[in-house]
């Protein structure tokens, strides 16, 4: 694999990383919830994609709405049952709760779907677009396209709609939001559901070219954390660009160095950002 190919592959998977990192960043930015179960929701989204494909034979047209709905419902359930009481706190208890939920989701997935990796054998996954010496499967390209469109849609939602303004107001100051008539709990419920819907959406497109097994969810968490820190905590476009950077760094490291150590530069990048620019690319130094 040459370097240009690594860049392309990195960019394509980085889009998907960006998509689920947006969800993770949203939960933190609005509610100060560090959702370590986020990767678990991505993994469930992958299974939703897998089964939607098996059942329908059509790739994304069925799996995308199915994943959005499943992820949103799961998010609403998790929020009401567990997270609502931790809003705004980001406490150790909340962190432990999230890790426990992530593990439980993984075990339940193992019981339901078995421990083995499964993948979709779709036509898209085995057809390639060849550009010079580079190539990409249609599944990779479609997943990237979905990620970009979803990111733009979330940005538009947050900055161009009434609900978006309300979410940003709650993120800024939940008590003051109450004082202006906003029901912060209801807005949080919506934001957390969206966060999980985005995770499941990312899973449903990732599974079109990446095999799913229950531990995949936790495996993705470092990416979400690093992408969020690089992009700036709570920033949607930051998390997306953070995801792109993670994808590219990972693939280039894997090509230029060795796949076994592909994550090392990612952690190095995390350390550099934490030391030099802890508020990330799009964060504000004064925030909190």
């Amino acid at each position: 694999m040459n370097l240009a190919q690594a860049l392309l592959s990195g960019l394509l998977i980085g889009g998907v990383y960006g998509l689920f990192s947006i969800g993770f960043s949203l939960a933190f930015g609005v509610m100060r919830i560090v959702n370590f179960a986020h990767g678990g929701v991505v993994m469930l989204g992958m299974y939703v994609g897998l089964y939607a494909f098996d059942a329908s034979g059509i790739d994304l047209l069925v799996s995308i709405p199915a994943a959005l709905i499943a992820g949103g419902l799961l998010g609403a359930t998790l929020y009401v049952t567990f997270y609502a009481r931790f809003v705004g706190k980001a406490t150790l208890q909340q962190l432990l709760l999230a890790i426990a939920l992530g593990l439980i989701i993984q075990v339940l997935a193992q019981m339901a779907f078995g421990p083995n990796a499964q993948s979709i054998r779709s036509a898209w996954g085995s057809q390639y677009l060849i550009i010079g010496t580079m190539f990409a499967s249609y599944a990779q390209i479609a997943a990237f396209g979905v990620a970009v469109v979803a990111t733009l849609a979330v940005e538009a939602l947050l900055h161009g709609t009434r609900w978006g303004h309300a979410v940003r107001a709650v993120a800024d100051d939940a008590e003051a939001a109450g004082i202006v008539g906003l029901d912060a709990q209801r807005i949080n419920l919506g934001a957390f559901s969206l966060s999980c819907a985005l995770a499941a959406l990312a899973g449903s497109v990732l599974v079109t070219y990446y095999p799913v097994s229950p531990p995949v969810g936790f495996g993705l968490m470092p990416i979400a954390l690093i992408a969020t820190v690089i992009g700036g905590l709570g920033s949607v476009k930051g998390a997306f660009f953070g995801g792109l950077i993670c994808g590219v760094v990972e693939q280039v490291a894997s090509t230029a160095w060795t796949p076994a150590l592909q994550d090392v530069p990612l952690y190095a990048l995390l350390l550099i950002f934490l030391a030099v620019r802890p508020f990330g690319l799009f964060g504000r130094p004064s925030a909190h």
Binding site: R162, H165, A166, R168, A169, A171, D172, D173, E175, A176, A177, I179, V180, G181, L182
Partner: peptide, 17 residues
């Protein structure tokens, strides 16, 4: 305690809505 991520107009708008 204004919403610092929102503009002046948006600060009023979220309340008015």
């Amino acid at each position: 305690r204004l919403f610092n991520n929102l503009t002046v107009e948006q600060n009023l708008a979220v309340a008015a809505m």
